[in-house]
Design a protein around this nucleic acid. Structure first.
Length: 88
DNA sequence: CCCCTGACTAGAA
DNA sequence: TTTCTAGCCAGGG
């Protein structure tokens, strides 16, 4: 478990209902600004207990291919979603 | 050790 | 507005 993983996991586990962050924000909060790709890679490989649906691309765009499912979950948590993207 | 890939981002053309 | 480039971290060949 690298520091990066630990930090990112900590940030994700700290998210509450309705809390949505972008990959870049997660990386920044974890202390690795610019490591957005690594965040995505981590969620892709270790998606065990991580709330992946609360992580979206820059601009609030949802994950391609599963925008439907993600949008549903987000809406159920009180997040306003419009046209496959989180409303700010 | 080097190169490529990936649920990414920001800036330039 | 759309496309491309460079930069970021980690993992695999």
């Amino acid at each position: 478990m690298t520091e990066f993983e630990t930090a990112v996991v900590a940030v994700l586990k700290g998210l509450g209902d309705g809390e949505v962050l972008t990959y870049g924000e997660v990386a920044d909060e974890a202390g690795f600004p610019g490591a957005a790709r690594a965040v995505g890679n981590l969620l892709r490989t270790c998606d065990d207990d991580l709330p992946w649906w609360r992580v979206v691309a820059a601009g609030g765009y949802l994950k391609a291919g599963e925008t439907s499912r993600q949008a549903e979950i987000l809406r159920s948590e009180g997040v306003r979603v419009e046209k496959n993207r989180v409303k700010v």
